[in-house]
Design a protein around this nucleic acid. Structure first.
Lengths: 222, 222
DNA sequence: CCGTTAGTGCGACAACAGTTGCGTTAGGAT
DNA sequence: ATCCTAACGCAACTGTTGTCGCACTAACGG
């Protein structure tokens, strides 16, 4: 997971509740207005979320503080994002919809190590948006779902890493790509998020190596 | 991790701030009073925490609700435990100091699988004290530290599993026991806590098998 | 048994989270 | 250019979280 990047575009935001792709085709639902002011507000607020997170950390990330910093009224934030979890969830979806691709280093070990280094970096940066999102996902269903979707997407995209390894003959066909990817990355999350160990710069490489050895031993094939 | 058991003893509780083992030898510090009423209050409150957690889940676990149920005033709870995290941390320390031992099944795979089944059970029981503690550990430093200490103790105790495997000749000597144990258990936590996947009854065995295969391939012998 | 005071009960208080009703502004369609 | 109304600003409100000062009760030492 890398840090979500800001794209100050004209996107609608999460307040648009499951709108079909053809907005004008739904007569019962009220017409959305994703234009000028709405988009501007969203950009201001999400900018404020990131700035507030950087300056005051996760504990200083309250709805009131974000609204003040964005120059927007409290109720506006509450109406569109509900709570802090909604804000971070929106920030995540904003950064997740870009066309991220796993690195292609030529070997399974290299690919997994590169992936792990990305995860490691996103979890150890100060402050870590990823860590804040994980923390808030235990309070906010919105954040939990956004994080779930984000990881689902990322793991799906990373399956190409395993596919490439199969094509190269590094792995036998029929390997459980998802299980392999989880085995490679889980120790990182376990140490940094749950055990809260001190960051170990060699951990990404070691975890990747362990997963590759297990895969070579046939751990993920039937 | 299994559910902490209640021992309605006369222990002091976490409010005793790092008291040396000889309380009477510290003239500057005020004399503690761990006796009758204090112990009774702690038992009442911790009982209420567990009951409240069982009946209303983690979301219903507020300081006020616990105090009401325990028949104790709010301020008493705030003063001795600070917050919900302190309450759960105390509950954990109460259950963690028993002489837990990892199962001895005769094989490394069996031992790791048994361990994983314990972890799986503690995380999927409804409601899960373990899951509640993990969730609250992101809000409360006390809970975070208690959880950290708990896991540190458990992983230390589990190193005997690896030692036994070395003695049996299943593993070469010099294996990194901690890394092996983390590799075996991390996928469980990753799926159940972070990814929030649906519980997979085969996951404990598969994760244990993966770790053993990696270990046999020399993944943890640096 | 008595004196000291740690621990508790009690009420008042501030700060924060979150909601509601209503008036105002500005997007978008005609 | 005009109308409709989504989105916003504003203020007042409720409920919860956490703190503080003071009085009181009971644990522990003598």
């Amino acid at each position: 997971m890398e840090s979500p990047r800001m794209a100050t575009g004209n996107r609608t935001g999460p307040s648009t509740p499951s709108t079909p792709s053809t907005p004008s085709a739904t007569p019962g639902a009220p017409a959305r207005r994703p234009g000028g002011r709405t988009a501007r507000t969203r950009a201001l607020v999400l900018d404020a979320v990131r700035a507030q997170l950087v300056e005051h950390g996760y504990d200083g990330l309250t709805v009131d503080a974000v609204a003040d910093r964005a120059g927007v009224h409290r109720t506006t934030v509450y109406r569109r994002w509900q709570d802090v979890g909604g804000l971070l969830a929106d920030l995540l979806t904003l950064g997740a919809d870009d066309d991220w691709q796993p690195a292609d280093t030529g070997t399974l070990l290299g690919d997994l190590a590169a992936l792990n280094h990305e995860v490691h970096a996103s979890l150890t940066e100060q402050p870590s948006i990823a860590a804040a999102l994980i923390a808030v996902s235990f309070r906010s269903p919105q954040a939990a779902e956004a994080l779930r979707d984000f990881w689902e997407g990322r793991y799906a995209q990373c399956e190409t890493v395993v596919d490439r390894a199969v094509v190269r003959g590094e792995l036998p066909p029929g390997a459980d790509a998802r299980a392999l990817l989880v085995a490679a990355t889980a120790p990182l999350y376990h140490h940094l998020v749950l055990l809260r160990s001190a960051p170990d710069p060699e951990l990404p490489d070691r975890a990747a190596r362990t997963a590759v050895l297990a895969a070579s031993a046939g751990a993920f094939t039937g």
